[in-house]
Amino acid sequence: MSHNILVIGELDEGSASATTLELLAGASEIASGGNVSVTLLGVGASQAVGACAGANTAYASDDAQYDDFRGDQWISAIQSAVESETPDVILVAQSIVGRELGPRLSHKLGTAVAMDCVSISDVDGSIKATRPCFGGNAMATYGFSTSPAIATVRAKSFEVTEGGSGPTTSTELPAASQSRTEIIATEAATAEGLQIQDATVVVCGGRGLGDAEAFGEMESIASAIGLDKAAVGASRAAVDLGWYPPSQQVGLTGKVVTPDLYLAVAVSGASQHMAGCSGSKTIVGINRDEEANIWSFSRYGIIGDYKQVVPALIEELKKASGN
């Protein structure tokens, strides 16, 4: 069955974000002939729709007030796109925007949202949303008894298969209305360089490292791979012990990362941790515990003490890269 799908896009430095393009790729597949539309809000929005491959129609407002997300302002704008499109499915990223927009929009539209989904599919004409729960110990598939079906979707759940261009024009959405919340201060996170959620390789240290100094070795692994693609993360246990900054925490309450390579060093692989990294393409473990949970998720593993394995690994990586 065909579906009319509205994707609520987000801008990243004036262009449609990577996740927006993923959602559009997924939407065009699920729509099976139905209309796919996209909304973009903020400076550059009306230009950015041009790159929204997969969308047939676009709605945009370049109002700078939309640059800082405020739920009530965004919802008013999106509601006018919803009225024109009457979608039966609405997709939004599981981002700081989607976490708020999903529930609030669902309530405004008299429907429901499934949060943090990793798969959206059509089963005999009905939309089904699948998501991890219980800290990643289980998965749940949901159906909707109201329409539209709204889902917030985890990054990299859909693959962008081809490039291409989007709509050449967009319908203008209204300028921002008055918000009930006023942003009085903003502060950038302390982490410099490549962010873990953008890295193609994440080297993650766990409680088994034993001390904060060992994170220097995790950084050496990242350097040997290349700091343009590798970043260092930490498990919640390591962050709670003060060994590494909270901005680098991987897991359910930290960041969800989906790199091509996830190297887990002295990480046991607790469910809450795996919920933050199990979407990685390849997981590699280094752990001295033969029974560690990390092996259930790993493609490759080295059983051994990281204190011996890591220096050897750094040396081999340097050899391989010719440094």
Binding site: T111, A112, M139, T141, Y142, G143, F144, S145, I283, F297
Partner: peptide, 15 residues
Amino acid sequence: SRLKIEKLFIPETDS
């Protein structure tokens, strides 16, 4: 309820 759970399962892990 508007959202209906249809299936709860333990995911197969890459072992």
